[in-house]
Write a protein that binds this DNA or RNA. Sequence first.
RNA 1: GGGCGCUUAGCUCAGUUGGUUCAGAGCGUCUGCCUUACAAGCAGAGGGUCGGGGGUUCGACUCCCUCAGCGCCCACCA
Length: 894
Amino acid sequence: MELASKYAPESVEGKWYKYWLEHDLFSSKPDGREPYTVVIPPPNVTGVLHMGHMLNETIQDILVRRARMEGKNACWVPGTDHASIATEAKVVNRLAAQGIRKADLTREEFLKHAWAWTDEHGGIILKQLQKLGASCDWNRTAFTMDEKRSESVIKVFVDLYNKGLIYRGVRMVNWDPKAKTALSDEEVIYKEEHSKLYYLRYYVEGGQIPENLPEGCVVHRDEKTGKPYAVVATTRPETIMGDTAMCINPNDPKNVWLKGSKVIVPLVGRVIPVIEDDYVDIEFGTGCLKVTPAHDVNDYMLGEKYNLTSIDIFNDDGTLSEAAGLYVGMDRFDVRKQIEGDLAEAGLLEKVEAYTNKVGFSERTDVPIEPKLSMQWFLKMKHFADLALPPVMNDEIKFYPTKYKNTYRHWLENIKDWCISRQLWWGHRIPAYYLPKGGFVVAETAEEALRMAQEKTGDTTLTLNDLRQDDDALDTWFSSWLWPISLFDGILDPDNAEFKYYYPTSDLVTGPDIIFFWVARMIMAGYEYTGKMPFRNVYFTGIVRDKLGRKMSKSLGNSPDPLDLIQQYGADGVRMGMMLSAPAGNDILFDEALCEQGRNFCNKIWNAFRLVKGWETAEAEQPQAAKTAIRWFDAQLRKSAADIAGMFKRYRLSEALMEIYRLFWDEFSSWYLEMVKPAYGAPIDRATYDATIAFFDTLLKLLHPFMPFITEELWQHIFDRKDGESIMVSPMTIAEPTAADSEILGAMENVKSIIAGVRAIRNQKNLPLKESLDVEVLGDMPLTDYESTIQKMANVGSIRRVTTKSEGASCFMVGTIEFAVPLGALIDVNAEIVKIEGELAHLTAFLGGIKKKLANAKFVANAPAQVVELERKKESDTESKIASLQEALAALKK
RNA sequence: GGGCGCUUAGCUCAGUUGGUUCAGAGCGUCUGCCUUACAAGCAGAGGGUCGGGGGUUCGACUCCCUCAGCGCCCACCA
C-alpha cells in the first residue's frame, strides 16, 4: 500500500480550495432553486482572525455547505467593516509613531492615511478565512465604506431625517476623552472599581443657622471657629469646580437646618444654593449631594429641573479647562490626586473611605467615560422598537437559543435614543450642510444641499463654498444595520432582481454580545426599509473561553492563533475541535485536545479509505455476513441521516457532528467494515465492494459540511470523477427510514450484544483471538441470517440451540435469552457464581420495584394502559431472566 | 437593585410535551492486545441517584416552592 498511514492535510487543503475557486463553486446567481442566504458578520477590515471568528465562520460554513448539498442555491456574502473608532485609533497611533499628530492634518490628509492603512491591512482576515475552508462567494465581497454601502447609508440618513426620526441637539452623552468622540450607550462598559469616597466640607455662607432646630438635626461645626458646615460625599472631588448647587432630600431630618441656606464650594469659594429634591438618598453618605450639571447625568437632570447653571470644567481630552479656574490643563485623574492633598491641607477634607463603585469605560479605548454635554445627532428609537419587538416575540424571526428573546425584549422596552454622531473622520460623513447665516439642510449630495439652501434662504447667490458640511462621521453600526439589505443593493435599488431573490436572508450567525449593537438594529432597519425581516433565524454562538473557563484575550495570552492550530491539526481537525465543544448558546471551553480528536478522526477516515481502496474485487459469491451487513448498514445510514437532519433543523450542530462521528467510527468502521472485510489477501466480491463504496460516498457527504477538505479528497478518489465535479455540489439524497429498518436495527443490536458478550468472556479469560469458541443459545432468538456474522466477528465456531447448556460454560444474557460459551477446564466456577449472583441481586431489586408499582391500585387505575402494560412486560421479562440465572446458578453450585 | 440562565459520571455536555428495561454521549480512567486500514489504534470494563430541602402526582432528572453556588444581561445611588 503506497498510501501513508496518516492523513496529511497540508498537501490536500490548498489544492482543493484552489479547485473550488477555479471552478467557481462558491458563487451564486439567482435561479429557480430555493435561495439560502447568509451574510457574514463583517469583521473589522484591519482585524486578524481570532478564535471567536473561527467558531462563527465555521458554523456559517457548515450551514451553507449543508444547504448547498440539499439543493438550495446557497449564497454566503463576505465583507468587512470599517470599524470607525477602532480603525481611526490604529491610524492615529501609527501616525503618532511617525511623529505626525492628527490635529496637524486636514480631514483629507488623514483619510488618505486611513485608506492606505486599510488597503495595506484590509482583507487579510478574508484570506485567513479561506484557510479555514469558508465557502463564501468572494465575487460579492463588500466593505461597509465602499461606494454602494456608503451611498445607502447617506440615503437612509437623509430619509430618516426627513421622516423626523433623526434630530440634532445638545444632550448629555458618553464622552470618550481619548478618542475625543461621543459614544452610544451600548459602547460604554461598566466595570467595578475600587475607589475612594471623599467627604468634603461645604461651609455655610454667613455662618448662620436657624434657631430652634428640630430633633434629629446633625450640624457640623468647625473645631476652632465653630462655623457650621455641611458634609458632601463624592467619588469625584475633581469636579467641585463645576458645582452649582448642593442638594438635600426635603424629608431628611439630619439636613433640614440647611434648607434655604447657601454653601461655599471648598477651595473654589463659589457660593451655591442648597436645593431640595427627593432624588437624594437620605441613607447614602451624609444625605448631601453636590450638583455638577455638566458632568453627571443625574446632576444634569437636577440642573434642568432647577434651572442651575452648568459649568463645563473639562476639555475634550479630559484635562481641566479654563472654566475650572483651578488646575487648568491638568488631567482629570492627576487633579483627583492633587486635590485630595490640597483639600486636606485647607482643612476641607473631613475623611476618606474606601469605596467600590461602577465606572463606565469606553468599549474601544478602555478609558473612563466622561459624561459631557454636547451637540450631537440622535435617532429616535421608540418607532424602531415598536417595529422590531413583535416579530421576535412571536417567532417570525427565531432566536437560537430562545433565552435571548428575553434580553432582546428588555432592551427594546427600555430603549433610549441612539447617539449616532461621532467626532471622527473615518466613517460616513454626516450629510448635513450648515448655512452661512445659521441653520442647516440635510441632503444626499452637496449639489442637492446647495439647491435646498438656496430655496431655504431665498438667496440664489449661495455657492457650494458657502456651505459647510458637518464634520462628524456616523457610528459604525449605522452602516452595519443595513448590511443584509445593502449587500444586495436593496436600499438604492429595492426592485432589483438579486435583492428580491436573496432577501430576506436565511440564517444569521453571531455572538450575543452584539445583540443590541447589531442584531436588533438590523431587524429595525429591515422592517423600516423592506417591510420584511432581514433574516429568518438567528443562531447565537457562545463566547470562546479557554479550558479553565477564562475568556480568551490577548492580555492573558490564552488565545491560540487559529492559523497555528490549522497548521498543526489541519483545518478539518480544528473545525471539528471547535464544533465538538460548541453547544448552541453556551460558552465554549476550547481545548486543543479537541483539535487532536478532530485530527484523529481524519486519520480514522483516511485509514478506512486505505482499507477499502486496497481491496481487490473478484467474481465471487457474496457471503451471508456481507449481505446482512449491507442490509443493516443501509438501514443504519437512513436512520442516522434522518436524526442528523433533525439536529440541523434545531441548529444542534455539535450533536449532529457527534452522530456522524459515531456513525463513521463505531458503526461503519468497527462494525460494518469488520463484517464485510475479506480474509487477508483475499479478494472481495463485486456486490459488497460496490455497496461499501456507496456507503463511503454517503458518509463523506454527511460529513462534508463539517470537514470539507478531507471529504473532498477522498470523494474524488473513491470514484473516478470528472474535472469540475465536487462533493461540495453533489446532492445529499438519503431516503427516509422505513419500518423494516427499525426491525433490522433491533435485530442487529442483539447480534452486537452477543458478539460483545463472547468478546467479554474471551477478554476475562484471556483467551487468544485465534482460538475459536462455541456458543450455545438457550431460548428462542431468530439468528439464522446473523450466525455467520457472529461467527466472523467473535471468532465463533458453532452456534447451537440447546435446552441444557454444557457444563463449565460461562454465560451472559441478551434480552431474556441466555447464551453460554463452554470453556471446559478453563471455567472459574467461583468467579462465575459471583458474577451471576451480582446480576441476580440487581434484577431482584429491579423486580421488587416493578411489583410494588403494579401492586399500587392507584397506579394501575390512573396510569395509561400502555404504561401499565409495559410495566407488566418488564415484570415478566425480569422474572424470566431471574429464572434462567437461578437455573444457571444451581447448575454451577451442583 | 432588577431580569435571565445554569447546577446530571473525573471533564465537557445531551436528556424534546412527567411514564419505553432511561439515567445517556464524547473525552479521560482502568484491563488486555503492536490482530495483516488505523497504537493519533483494537477489544473489554468501571463510573453518577440527576446541587440541598420541601411539595404536587399512581409516577419527578423532567412541574411548583425554597435555600445554596455559579454565570450573563440591564440599571442614574453620588
